[in-house]
């Protein structure tokens, strides 16, 4: 059924990050990160807050400007000073922790606005694509709702539909479920799970270890601005090799564990 609707066909792009460095003043938050994501691969970035994982994600679509190193996304070299940032960003969907839906537009318009203004699609075509993607995230029936009429989980699913409506080749998720009520987390994760199955390349910053373990092809553990450990999900989360990874997982996986030093 998906084959008849061209917007569902995923042309996945890969990401190649090499020796990436980023500082805020004298504070170096990324200390030489190298990471490769193959087309169609799902990679989860995990680690304590302040480890640089969100900064790394935001560097990929240049919401943060790296100081050193290179990033290749699809056919673009993001770190080339002459890169057409806007053209590159069309290929890279971004989902934020705080959703960042446009509050003055309804769900359908949220999805169609960039299609008409950036991709120059006609309103009719853009609406069709938008509605298709809203149905894809299970919200076709709420297309005319405004963001303040939707729950957090619904807003985040609209945000995913909005990103998908640009036909991205790579999706970046920056802690997509961290701002959600616990009961709506599942809906968002299941949308992401389906997206992974369809073959989308996904780079996901998350604290949902169960999701990472189930969906991710690879998991990357970051701490203090470096990649401490990476590998297949089952191995990194199930039997980590590095002491820092073990310590982190022990804290996040054991709800009864209370660390006095925190």
């Amino acid at each position: 059924m998906n084959d008849v609707v061209p917007t569902t066909t995923v042309h996945a792009a890969g990401v190649d990050i090499s020796d990436l460095r980023k500082s805020y003043g004298s504070n170096e938050v990324l200390k030489g990160i190298s990471l490769n994501v193959k087309p169609g691969e799902v990679v989860c970035l995990i680690g304590p807050s302040g480890s640089g994982k969100s900064t790394l994600l935001r560097c990929v679509n240049l919401l943060e400007q790296p100081n050193q190193g290179s990033i290749h996304v699809g056919g673009f070299e993001a770190t080339d000073p002459d890169v057409d940032i806007d053209k590159m960003r069309r290929k890279v969907g971004m989902v934020f922790q705080q959703f960042n839906l446009f509050p003055h537009l309804n769900a359908l318009r949220n999805c169609s606005i960039a299609q008409t203004k950036v991709l120059k699609r006609s309103q009719a075509e853009a609406d069709k694509v938008s509605l298709h993607n809203l149905e894809r995230v299970g919200l076709g029936h709420l297309a005319d709702r405004f963001p303040d009429q939707l729950s957090g989980g619904q807003q985040q699913r609209v945000a995913i539909a909005r990103a998908l409506s640009m036909n991205p080749e790579l999706m970046l998720f920056d802690e997509p479920t961290s701002a959600l009520d616990p009961e709506t987390v599942g809906d968002v994760l299941s949308v992401m799970r389906n997206l992974a199955k369809e073959g989308m390349t996904m780079l996901v910053v998350t604290h949902e270890m169960a999701f990472a373990r189930e969906v991710a092809d690879r998991v990357v553990f970051m701490d203090g601005g470096v990649v401490v450990e990476e590998g297949v999900a089952e191995q990194v989360i199930g039997s980590p090799a590095q002491p820092r990874t073990k310590e982190f997982l022990r804290r996040v996986l054991d709800p009864t564990h209370i660390n006095i030093e925190d």
Binding site: D86, R90, V92, N100, L101, V118
Partner: peptide, 11 residues
């Protein structure tokens, strides 16, 4: 975040 979301969509 509004500006970031718009820029992320290629605007």
């Amino acid at each position: 975040g509004q500006l970031e979301a718009a820029r992320s969509l290629g605007m």
